[in-house]
Every structure is written in C-alpha cells, then in structure tokens.
C-alpha cells in the first residue's frame, strides 16, 4: 500500500464481503432447498436454514432416480460425466503433446500446414457446425457411446499452442546433450520433455476436466438413451417438465451434485487452476 488508509481497507473488506455473498448466496439457497420437502418449497416457506430432508432427497436422486421425469439415476449421470470429462481431458493433452512435439522438434514437409490446420480449429466451435458434426457422428454409429461423447471434442488448438510455446522455451542444449548420449526421439520425449512438462500438464488438466464436465450442447445432441446422459443435461430434464410439477428439492440436489466435482477441483487445485486458465488464454 502506498499510504495507510484504515478506512479504505475496511471499505475494501466490505466490498469484497458483499461480492462473496452475492456469489455464494444463490448456491447456498440451492443447497438449502435440496434439504427440504416439496411442500415447504411450494408454499414459499423456505427459510435460510437447511432442513431435515438432506439424506432422503440425495439418496432418492442417487439411487431411485428422479421419479416421473427421468428413469436414469443421478449416479449413472455422474459416472457418465466423469468418464467423458476424463477422456476429453487426457485425450486432448495426449494428442496435443505429441503433435506439438512433432511440430517443434522435427523438420518435415507440410509441418506448417499441419500447424495451421490445428490452429485454425479455433475458428470452428461446435456451436457453428452443430448439425453436420452430429451427422458424421451418427454415420459413424457413435451416438450414445462414450467415444461419441468425447472423441469429437478432443482436438485442441489451445493445448497444442500451449505445449508448443512451452517446448520453445526448453533450452536447445538439452536436446544436443541427449543426442550426444545417443537418445532417440522417443527416449528424449519420455525422459526429458515429459518430466519438464509436468506442471503444464497438470494445470491444463484442471481446465480441461472442467471443460469436459460442463459440456452441454454436444451430449444433448448425441445422447438419446437415458443411461448415457451426463449430469449437466440431465438436470435440465428434471426442470423441463411442466413447471408446476418440478420437484425443486430434487432439481437443486442434482444441481449441487453436478457442480461439486468441478468446483472441488478448482478449490483444491487453485494454484494450478489459475496457472492453467491464464496460460491457455494467452
């Protein structure tokens, strides 16, 4: 601080506390709603404190399904979300690592063509090519499969750019030394580059896991069976039935479960998360 302003500091705390309340309150209320019975919520009697129905509501959505709206259990949806998020995150990292390795450490014809082809995928988010992509996945027979849920999202220009940028900062001497020691390209990759990239990989993983978990449009298009739904699209179907019939306590319990894994990842790995976020966006 340049000058000591006790009053200014108090004001800063005040502003931040209000900010935190605004951010936290909606989710807190969702949690409160997930611990009450339908009657209390329907009558608008919901207070600020959790109620006694926590175990009942959560075990109902997890193991009995959400009743008249969908037959799928939320535990199946959580499993589907987890599997596809893991495949998307690891897949993106794996193929981006090797393709940027090729682009940085090899000289071959069409090297720059390959680079630009990968780079330009930034210009084609799923949202601008919705139906043609759906058609390909359908033609390949990948509807309602984990492959269909994840593989089309695995190409990654940002991850490739990030690794390329990182590899450029690795000193040339390391490669020269490795060559003198007669290490081949695969050996160099495995024993030198991979260990050096550990932090970058971890930071990227945090971001990509969240990205995969939170996919909406793609799973909505390519899953037709209830048991292949991810939790993010499953939750909408709980609310989408006639509004008056929505069982809000179950919808809110599902919302809490749907956000818990990615939020935990951010909170627990905050340093990596911030690093990943700032670096992938550069």
């Amino acid at each position: 601080m340049v000058e000591n302003r006790p009053f200014g500091n108090i004001l800063a705390h005040l502003v931040l506390i209000v900010g935190v309340l605004v951010i936290v309150f909606p989710v807190y209320m969702a949690f409160v709603a997930s611990t009450w019975d339908p009657a209390t919520i329907a009558n608008g009697k919901l207070g600020l404190l959790p109620g006694p129905y926590l175990v009942e509501n959560y075990s109902r959505i997890l193991f009995e399904g959400t009743g008249r709206t969908t037959r799928a259990h939320v535990d199946t949806m959580l499993f589907n979300s987890f599997v596809s998020a893991m495949i998307i995150a690891t897949g993106k990292i794996a193929i981006s690592l090797i393709s940027s390795y090729a682009i940085v450490y090899f000289r071959f014809p069409f090297r720059m063509v390959a680079f630009w082809l990968i780079f330009l995928t930034l210009m084609f988010p799923v949202e601008v090519r919705i139906y043609p992509t759906y058609k390909i996945v359908a033609d390949l027979g990948l509807l309602d499969t984990y492959t269909g849920l994840s593989v089309p999202l695995i190409a990654s220009a940002t991850a490739t750019l990030l690794f390329r940028q990182f590899f450029m900062t690795v000193p040339d001497e390391l490669l020269e030394a490795a060559k003198i020691d007669a290490a081949g390209p695969l050996r160099f990759f495995k024993d030198v580059l991979l260990p050096l990239s550990r932090t970058n990989i971890a930071a990227l993983f945090v971001i990509l896991f969240i990205y995969g978990w939170n996919q909406y449009l793609w799973p909505l298009l390519i899953t037709t069976r209830d048991d292949m739904q991810t939790v993010v699209i499953g939750i909408k179907k709980i609310v989408a039935v006639q509004d008056a019939l929505t069982e809000w306590q179950l919808a809110m319990a599902t919302a809490i479960l749907a956000m818990l894994p990615p939020v935990l990842v951010v909170v627990v790995m905050q340093k990596l998360f911030v690093k990943g976020l700032v670096e992938t966006e550069k």
């Binding site: 989710v27 709603a33 993010v232 956000m259 990615p262 905050q270």
Partner: peptide, 25 residues
C-alpha cells in the same frame, strides 16, 4: 470464494437462478 463459479456449468447455474426467480416460490 470468488473464483469457483467458473467451474459451474452454465446450464446448472441457469437452473439455480430459475429456482431463485421462479414467480410463485
């Protein structure tokens, strides 16, 4: 306390806000 909403899926955030602004309850 301020950064975690990044991890909340837009659709999930949406459902929570509909609930808070649901006209009757």
């Amino acid at each position: 306390l301020l950064v975690w909403p990044y991890a909340v899926a837009p659709a999930v955030a949406g459902v929570i806000w509909i609930f808070l602004f649901q006209p009757s309850l």
